[in-house]
Write a protein that binds this DNA or RNA. Structure first.
Lengths: 231, 231
DNA sequence: CGTTACATAATTGTATACAATAATACAAAA
DNA sequence: TTTTGTATTATTGTATACAATTATGTAACG
């Protein structure tokens, strides 16, 4: 229920195929599968109480977006988002989120501005209360709202997917000390720039926002490596 | 057979589902369908001599990439690439192709360099001969080879799709007077920068290359509007 | 002991069957 | 004529059945 604002969030949750797709996708993105885990149609169908047909449709979609590798007559295998993927995504996002903010400045409607401000207001409230889960949700929502405001289905499509793909890292980032405060402040600044119709500033702030997140993540990863991996 | 270098070019052409996917995708991207054309599973299956099952799998994939709109219990409808989509894609590409060239400079192997040079050599030959179809193929190949050299499956995925989505415009661009010569020269320049391991220059040249294509397309569109549309 | 051959089982690929939903046609009523 | 209710048809959603391919186990053979 957490991701009701995600890109595929409002997708046909009502069809069996949709449920299977969501389930497997979330499980992959949440790291519940090891890399190259085989996804057997019958097993998944049995677990979720559906036949192979909707499972196959879901697997085909996951294959298209690269989260699953399907080898003809052999099977479907999990293809997780790697560390390098995350790095690549963030670097690409630093460019695309900038462009998104620029376009949003041009196209955003009054209604969308108010929706954004409401999200922001809530974010500021939950930042004070340090409600991490809520903040993660609101961070997702803020960015999704920006994507929608860009008025570019192409950009929105790419950024929404990327946003999903790095969800684990985003969670860690928001939970890390002090980042949520900074992040919310940056969101506020981006919003103000867009509201003031300052496209250059909005773009630069959005890019900076992603860069700061990258920096935050780098530190987390380094700390983690020191803690766990000793190879 | 034209697109054997495309992103989905080497995909499971052998499975029925794969053939259906390729067929419908190409038909949509080549403009053979009107916007919002309904794609009935039974009809497509009958036409291609397959059952509804592989057709549905194909439609689900097309839905995921946004080329088809599926309304629950209603049907599947064509969602073409619009003029705005093309503009958005080119602007995004001008950033991403730059980054791609940068990464390629870092990661490209000697073998890949040689493959690129061979493509370039062929391009230069067919430019002299003015073989438009061949040049289109080689342009696709050159860019695909760059995507592969970037060593980023994330970037490659996005750029390959975008490259497909604007294929009609790319065709027109290459066919337009003088553009193929310029384009091949720009490819050569990008290649030389990468070979010289000059990432800054490679990035700038790749960005410029896309920007020049944009300019070329703008002129074509303007000419077209003057010729046909009088609204 | 390792290797190959073959039978068996497991799994995917595709087709068909059935169920659920939506579109259509047509008749009855206002 | 317009509207509404209903039967019919068409279409999608899902399950199942069958075919094709691949994995597995085992016995014969070197």
């Amino acid at each position: 229920m957490e991701d009701r604002h995600g890109p595929k969030g409002s997708r046909d949750r009502h069809s069996l195929h949709g449920k299977v797709y969501e389930k497997i996708r979330e499980d992959i993105l949440n790291g519940k599968y090891e890399q190259h885990t085989e996804l057997k149609e019958a097993a998944i169908g049995a677990e979720l109480g559906v036949s192979r047909t909707p499972v196959r449709e879901a697997l085909r979609q996951l294959e298209l977006e690269g989260l699953v590798n399907m080898i003809p007559n052999r099977g479907a295998f999990v293809n997780r988002i790697t560390e390098k993927d995350v790095q690549d995504i963030y670097l690409i996002r630093s460019m695309l989120e900038g462009q998104c903010a620029r376009w949003a400045t041009e196209y955003i409607t009054e209604a969308q501005l108010e929706d954004l401000e409401e999200t922001l207001c809530l974010s500021e409230y939950h930042t004070k209360k340090n409600h991490i889960d809520k903040l993660y949700e609101l961070d997702s929502l803020f960015h999704e709202q920006l994507y929608a405001a860009s008025n570019s289905r192409i950009l929105k499509h790419v950024l929404s997917d990327f946003h999903d793909y790095v969800k684990q890292v985003r969670r860690a980032s928001i939970a890390s000390d002090g980042r949520s405060v900074k992040s919310t402040e940056e969101h506020r600044a981006i919003f103000e720039a867009i509201k003031a119709r300052d496209a250059d500033r909005a773009e630069e702030l959005a890019k900076e926002h992603v860069r700061h997140t990258i920096k935050c993540i780098r530190e987390i990863v380094l700390a983690d490596e020191g803690t766990f991996h000793t190879e």
